[in-house]
Amino acid sequence: MVHKKIVTYFEEHYSKSPTLIKAPGRINLIGEHTDYNEGLVLPASIEKGIYFAVSGNDLNSIRIETFLTQPEKIEFQLNSHHNPFNSFWGNYFKAIIEILVSKDYPLKGMDCVFGGDIPIGSGLSSSAALCCGFIYAITKVSGKSISREKIALIAQEAEHKIGLNCGLMDQYAVLFGKKGNAFLLDCKDLSHNYIPINLNGYSWVLVNSNIKHNLAVDSEYNKRRISCENIVKGVQKSRPEIKSLRDVTLVDLNSLVNVSNSIDIKRAKYVIEENDRVRQMIKVLTLGDALAVGEILRKGHWAMSIEYEITTTELDTLVKIGEGLEGVLGSRMMGGGFGGCTINLVQTDTLDESINSLLQQYKDQTGIDAEYYPLSIDDGVKVFE
């Protein structure tokens, strides 16, 4: 187990017994690209995560080592200066430390070793787990708590500093997840509640297309956000009370057909209808209607493919193959887009047969070896015993 290796390494190199923090990855059942439009999302935290072994030191510095991609060690002085580093993850930690310094948070010297089993670039929000887990670890060493709501905002600000203008869904899912439940978040007012996942006889499975994405480098994410903002500005000319796409209706959208960019119109339509799919998913999960859940997954995927244009040929291929397999009730791309995983609802008693057939057909059609991960819904960020 990766967390045991991290603890053992920490004890061998720092001669202390650390506190171990787990920050989970997250899936999203439905509700993609709705969060930054003040819409509805339905994520859940999972058992895969990033683990942080941490302990205080007397060196007036924060020393960090990782097994996340390749071994590397970086060090930050508490005056926010740091030695040069090459790791992508170092930029997240640098941003977090700078934000905490700007807020006069009482940082203390800390040693940290981290690693995990979230596949990087697969759409499981490894960056949110990285940021939220690191901030939470800092609070455990410093002894000064920060509310989970504020941790989410700091983590979001850190992502913004390195170039990804993300919403708050990932951070909230990582921080507030609850075992066995989906997490309904209203991104307009950040109210939330839990939706039990009661689909007996069915399993959630992630299939990694092994097409990697990096949204902070790829500006396509931000282009879609701009499209949504353009539509809001257009509607505000006749309805100035509108603040976000959440309050825009299809009637409002139709009124802009002759005056707005057609691509912006198409993308806004996707977001409005995706909010409705979240509402529908809550109902059918509550009813335990697995067939209806699968149908919503499929509709959500093809809307992302055709209207929001954020899938890839490989992801579309995975979904098409699943549509032809009897044991797969529904699939869709999950995450920001342009790579990553599909989330699949699969009949449990045929799971091995269905997934093996899916992987083989994908290999035959694309030449790519996909991977799969059975899912278990778990708790949010916590001290891991």
Rank of each mutant, 00 (worst) to 15 (best):
K4M: 01
K5C: 00
F10G: 08
E12M: 02
E12N: 15
S17C: 01
P18R: 10
I21H: 04
K22D: 00
L29Q: 13
E32K: 12
E32Y: 06
D35G: 05
D35L: 04
Y36N: 13
L40W: 10
I50R: 02
N57M: 10
S61D: 10
I62A: 05
R63M: 08
F76G: 08
Q77E: 11
S80R: 14
H81P: 00
F85I: 10
N86A: 15
F88H: 15
K94C: 09
A95L: 12
I97H: 10
L100M: 13
S102I: 00
L107S: 08
M110W: 09
M110K: 06
G116F: 00
G116D: 04
D117G: 10
D117S: 04
G121D: 08
G121W: 02
G123Q: 06
S126W: 02
A137P: 09
T139M: 07
K140P: 08
E149D: 11
E149N: 11
A152C: 08
I154N: 10
Q156C: 12
E159V: 11
K161E: 06
I162D: 01
G167M: 07
G167W: 05
V174C: 15
G177D: 03
K179N: 12
L190A: 02
N193T: 13
Y194S: 11
I195M: 03
P196C: 07
N200L: 02
S203Q: 11
S203F: 00
I211H: 09
K212E: 07
H213L: 04
A216F: 05
N222W: 09
C228I: 04
K233D: 12
G234H: 15
G234L: 13
Q236S: 15
Q236C: 11
K237N: 13
P240Q: 06
E241L: 00
I242Y: 02
L245V: 04
R246W: 01
D247F: 09
V251C: 01
L253I: 07
L253K: 12
L253V: 10
I263R: 15
R267P: 01
E274V: 14
R279M: 13
M281K: 03
K283E: 11
V284I: 09
L285H: 08
A290F: 03
G294E: 05
E295L: 05
R298L: 12
K299S: 13
T313L: 11
L315A: 04
T317F: 00
L318A: 10
K320W: 00
E323W: 00
G324A: 06
V328N: 06
L329Y: 04
M334T: 14
G335A: 06
G336N: 09
G337V: 07
Q347A: 07
T348L: 09
T350V: 12
N356L: 04
S357Y: 00
K363L: 13
P374L: 06
K382D: 03
